[in-house]
Amino acid sequence: MENKSRRTADILALIGILACGICLCILVYRLQAKKEFLMQRIDASQKLNAETETEIENIKSDTAKLQEDIRIYADMEKTAAETRENYYKVCKQLEDAVIAHEADCKIAYLTFDDGPYLNTTGKYLDVLDQYGVLATFFQIGRPSEELDPLYRRVYETGHTVANHTYTHQIRNGIYRSVDAFISDVKRNREFIEDKLGYTTDILRFPGGSSSARNLKPAIIEELRKLGYGYVDWNSATGDGVQMMTPAEYRDNVLNKTGNRDILVVLMHDYSANTLTALPEIIEGLKNQGYIFLPLFYESSMINK
């Protein structure tokens, strides 16, 4: 009886051990499955993280490129001004080469005094645009809102805007004294600055520098202090002196170049006859080997 109960207890113990064994095996199996599941999720999560990190880096790099472009575009006004300055440096190199007879061309600086004029200056600009010619406009102070677009157009097209005094009052005006002249120059400089945000550094005396007579040396000294250089001319249509036909204006320029290396041609943008003559003047000078430049401060034609 005792043996029987012991055997029963042993069998029960074996069954218990077996059950425990089975349970543990099931647990091992399930934990193993869970471990594999977790490892897969971790792999997937880490892969996703790596992809996200790469994407973030790419976006940051693209954003940096955009910001670089923003900087470039934000500086574009300055860049354009620098490129314009660089153009004048090339003009200077070319002028030096022309003077040294090392270039295959001569230079003509077309200059227009006394503008802008509402009825004619725009037409002059159209002709110059048509021929791709840059010139120099010696402007005076004309405080009329109607003329503002013309002041701007001259400058924005690339022509040189230069100072010709505010009032241009030759008799009993600007040549009364050095102070009278200089204050008129300053007034026009400020007037143009207000209109264009541009400070002129080239000046032409109304009537030419000889009009200043005995005041000329003192005026030039004051102009130098203000940072101005001045220019006269060595060629002219004559439209400021005498009324002539367009053909006569044309011939006054084309027949009197004297084969000079550098011409500074005086014209006035109020003259309808000069306007008519202008295309032939441009073509005639081109045929004589001239190219057209706007005046710039460093030019050898500017007296400093």
């Binding site: 575009y73 574009m76 860049t79 354009a80 490129t83 314009r84 660089n86 153009y87 090339v90 003009c91 190199q93 070319l94 080469a97 270039a103 295959d104 061309c105 840059l134 924005e156 690339g158 190219i291 430049l293």
Partner: peptide, 18 residues
């Protein structure tokens, strides 16, 4: 941008005479 391109082109054109 337009202005910058214009001045670049003008300078390049002038350089052909140098």
């Amino acid at each position: 941008i337009e202005e910058n391109e214009k001045w670049k082109t003008r300078a390049e054109e002038l350089q052909t005479y140098l």
